[in-house]
Amino acid sequence: MNATTSRGALLAALACVLVGGSFTANSVLGAYPYAGGQFLRYGLACVLLFPLAGRGALPRLKALTSRQWVRLALLAAVGMVGFNLAVLAAERTAEPAVPGVFVGCAPVVVAVLVPLLDGRRPQRTVIHGALLVAVGACVVQGWGRTDGAGLAFSVCALAGEVGFAVLAVPVLRPLGPRLLSAVVCAIAALESAAAGLLADGTGWLRRPDAVEAGALLWQAVVVTVVGFVCWYMGMQRIGAERATLFSGLIPVAAACTAPLVGTGSYGIAQGVGSALVGLGVALGSGAPKPPVRPSAPLGDRHAEQPRQPPFEGTAARGGVESAAE
């Protein structure tokens, strides 16, 4: 594993640890309007991210095709707004572990789907590692009570988690991690506002209290700004298949932090599951990265772009979840 691969793995791991650790922040937002919370989270993140996108941001945005804009809108709707909504809807009739188990299967789906969409065969090593990660995530979380609606929304949450990685692949090269994160946050904020107005009318947004404001600020600054950029930086370096392996760290981080706030415990099952996740990540991330296709014009789904300067702001994005080399 060379320096670029190692750094990509660390960035992806950091993003997923931040997401897992942010579940405690989600627990205090149960009474806050969903759409309004998403609007504030992504809106603030967008404001913070755009100044970090660099001087060439506007020309890169103007060069995007209508098809790429549609993909960005789907990425925000499916992988961000839709994912969070599906998890909340699933937990109305299912215990939190149920959607968590489904989301834990995302590495397996991505390990198969991304190579097929790219016109190549899935790597056996990555698939084997993804299976271990999925099993480990299930062991960490266990299973819970549910009904048909809970299962259906859990499947939707899985689709959202997969979409967050798969839909980003063709637009990551032309935009880079920082600008991609800024754009999808802007779109997600607009989509959240539209959904709130349609579903809740004038009550879709209210002033948060001190605790809610702190949780929203954590989600916007740490989970979204830092986590999103870290995630896409890692994905850019090691590929979507291997980066998604690290999503198994989300339930591990949640299990480790839950005892700190008295919302859970860390026992033998969590220890065994964490070990399986670690083994799967080590196995799958050791597979060689697929070769990059030759350069193509902007607008082609595999277009190569000039290398971007490193992002310097990651030292300063939870249900997680960051710059081009």
Rank of each mutant, 00 (worst) to 15 (best):
R145P: 01
V135D: 00
L113V: 14
D147V: 03
C156Y: 07
E95A: 10
L151P: 12
V135H: 02
P99Q: 11
G136E: 08
G129C: 10
D118G: 13
P115A: 09
V133A: 06
V162L: 05
F164M: 05
V135M: 05
L116C: 06
A159F: 10
A97K: 01
V114K: 04
A165I: 08
T146R: 03
V112I: 15
A130C: 04
G136Y: 12
A137L: 00
V110Q: 03
L132A: 12
P122T: 11
V139I: 14
G148N: 03
R124T: 15
F102E: 08
V101C: 13
L132K: 08
G160S: 05
Q141V: 01
L132N: 00
V162Y: 04
G129Q: 09
V112F: 12
A149R: 14
Q141W: 00
A130V: 11
V103G: 02
G136H: 04
F102Y: 10
V139T: 06
P122D: 06
G150W: 11
A130G: 10
H128I: 15
G136T: 08
G150V: 11
G144A: 04
G160N: 02
A157C: 09
A152I: 07
A97R: 02
G148L: 12
V101I: 12
V114P: 01
V133D: 05
P115G: 07
Q123T: 12
D147Q: 07
G148E: 05
A134R: 00
L131E: 02
W143F: 15
L167C: 13
W143A: 15
V133Q: 06
V103A: 13
G148F: 06
V103I: 14
A168V: 09
V108F: 11
A97T: 04
R121A: 14
V133P: 09
V98R: 03
V135C: 01
R120I: 02
A159W: 02
G100F: 05
F153P: 03
T125N: 08
Q123H: 05
C156N: 07
Q141F: 00
A137N: 02
V166K: 03
T146S: 14
Q123C: 09
G100T: 10
F102G: 05
Q123D: 14
G150F: 05
V101M: 08
G100M: 02
A165F: 15
V98A: 03
L116D: 01
G150T: 08
F164Q: 08
D118S: 15
H128G: 15
P99I: 08
A137T: 03
V103R: 07
Q123L: 07
R120E: 01
G160C: 10
L151N: 13
L116K: 05
D147I: 09
P115V: 06
V98S: 06
V103M: 11
V140N: 07
Q141I: 00
G119Q: 00
L132W: 06
L167Y: 07
V112D: 07
L158P: 01
V139R: 02
R145M: 10
F164G: 04
R124A: 15
V126T: 11
V140H: 03
R145S: 14
A134N: 03
G163Y: 01
V114E: 15
R145D: 14
V155W: 11
V103Q: 06
W143Y: 09
V166Q: 06
A159C: 14
F153Q: 07
A165S: 15
A137R: 05
P99S: 08
A137M: 04
S154C: 12
A149H: 12
